[in-house]
């Protein structure tokens, strides 16, 4: 077997880019992108929004989670061109004028952050949950974030933080 995995920019290939118009964090942008670009690559490399993290690359960990039309998706398994006309929210779009979203504040106050690599995806997943269900139970939180792997916390403080941000948890212990 030789070659044939589909060459990169080193090869002479025709321009196959498509125009993508998409709203990211409230701002509309319109760029030419290759069809083989994932939403994650588009956000990180074309827009410089590196808050979405690449960890497993195959839809098994949730570190790349962003919200597309309010729904949490694994951006490593979505084509950028498939987001035509859609509304994408990344972690960078959550704080408004430097004021943290209550979830971000709760993650800080409750010690829900350790290495931080899962944090953006976890917070966005939690946002999608709280938007639909502002006062989730412990079990509902677990169900919602079960597609996001955290290696550091055992999820204990993450669940606490999400419930606190939703107003059903206990206050932070400071």
């Amino acid at each position: 077997m030789g070659g044939g995995v589909g060459g990169g920019v080193g090869q002479d290939v025709a321009d196959t880019r498509k125009r993508l118009t998409v709203t990211v964090n409230g701002r509309q942008c319109s760029l030419m992108v290759e069809p083989n670009r994932t939403l994650l690559e588009f956000l990180r490399e074309d827009l410089g929004l590196t808050g979405a993290r690449e960890a497993c690359d195959t839809g098994g960990c949730g570190a790349c989670t962003v919200l597309v039309d309010g729904r949490p998706v694994y951006s490593c398994l979505v084509l950028a061109v498939d987001c035509q006309g859609k509304d994408v929210l990344t972690i960078e779009g959550l704080a408004v004028d430097g004021r943290l979203h209550p979830l971000q504040q709760a993650f800080i106050d409750h010690g829900a952050v350790q290495c931080g690599f899962c944090t953006p995806g976890m917070i966005l997943t939690a946002k999608a949950l709280l938007d639909e269900n502002p006062a989730p139970t412990d079990e509902e939180v677990r169900e919602a974030i079960a597609g996001n792997i955290c290696r550091c916390t055992g999820y204990v403080k993450i669940i606490e933080a999400i419930r606190a941000a939703g107003g059903t948890g206990k206050p932070a212990c400071t």
Partner: peptide, 22 residues
């Protein structure tokens, strides 16, 4: 002896923390 928030928490919850990956 006090449960203070992490010094790097703000960077991490806003997605601004820079990893070698970035």
């Amino acid at each position: 002896g006090t449960s203070l928030p992490r010094v790097d928490a703000w960077d991490k919850v806003t997605g601004r923390a820079e990893y070698a990956f970035d």
